Computed example of a mutant assay.
Amino acid sequence: MAETKTHRITVAQRPLLLSWSGITDQGRRRETNQDAFLADYPLFIVADGMGGHAGGEIASQSTVARLQAVVSSGKVDGPSIENALELAVGDIADHPETTDEGTGTTLTGVYFDSDGDESRWIALNIGDSRVYLLRDDRLVQITTDHSVVQELITAGKLSPEEAEGHPYSNVITRAVGASELTAPDYVSIDVRAGDRFVICSDGLTKELTDYGIQHFLREHHDPGAAVDAMLAAALENGGRDNVTLIIVQVTAEEDSSSPIENTAE
């Protein structure tokens, strides 16, 4: 089973426990895995690389490496993330195996932001990987895809049903490294006990509907068990792409029996 890690936080003088787990798989049809992820408190990120030869793998891994350095610095916020992305763009462009002008990566995830008495989640997104939130037993997509299909849906020219299987379904309009630097979209979310985030590449959402994601969250409370179950289902349903996902959940500490590996106030 995928490993579940934990970290104690305090929000409005109330102790809460964060638990998370992440997993990535090549899938059943791809020759390589061009996805990468980072699950290291307080930042949880999925990157889905694209580009010929080894380009996609280079783009996603370079971006995750730069963001890991941000976590190690102890200062995770919008400016530090955007500075890391600028450095990653340079890494991608300078890499000797990166020759495809279309090389780049999506980037999506959440980070925990605490400033004095105020705490929040910040979701960020570039591309068509997604962040979902299960709150009060209702699953909501927090991020908006940067894709041709989503633009058509927003313009009222395409229904969500028509979008499934659309010939441009894989065409994204924003990425890290594909062109000049693009800043992420940000969404601020309040912190509540019981919340569960799913951060995933489109390799998961190609194979599982929103209903399916919600089903596995209901069936498996432990994040490690839930990511294992979702990955198995995605592979069973075809595994047409690399599959990467992270689950992060917030629990009232008095309601959790999980061991605490890392603590912070």
Rank of each mutant, 00 (worst) to 15 (best):
K75T: 14
Y186A: 07
T99D: 12
K75S: 13
L208P: 02
D35P: 02
A252D: 14
T108C: 14
M230E: 01
G109Y: 08
D202M: 11
Q61K: 15
V71C: 07
L18G: 00
Y168V: 02
Y41K: 03
T4H: 06
E164C: 06
V248S: 05
T105C: 10
C200H: 08
A2S: 15
A252G: 12
L235R: 12
S256G: 02
S73W: 07
P42H: 02
T32A: 12
L85H: 09
A229F: 09
E219I: 04
V64H: 04
D137F: 09
E253S: 13
V70F: 02
T108E: 02
L139G: 04
L67D: 00
G102K: 12
E97L: 13
Y211S: 13
Q13S: 15
G239T: 04
A88E: 02
E3F: 14
N242M: 04
F216I: 09
S73R: 06
A12P: 01
L18T: 00
I126Y: 02
I126V: 15
D210R: 12
D228M: 07
G49H: 07
I246G: 06
G165N: 10
E118N: 02
A183M: 11
V187W: 14
L107N: 00
Q214T: 13
P96Y: 12
V76G: 04
F216Q: 11
S129K: 12
Y211A: 14
D40Y: 12
E82Y: 08
R66P: 03
D128H: 01
D255K: 09
A84M: 07
I172S: 08
G177N: 08
D128E: 03
D136F: 08
R138Q: 15
A36P: 01
E3P: 00
Q141W: 09
A39T: 00
A232E: 13
G224N: 06
I58E: 00
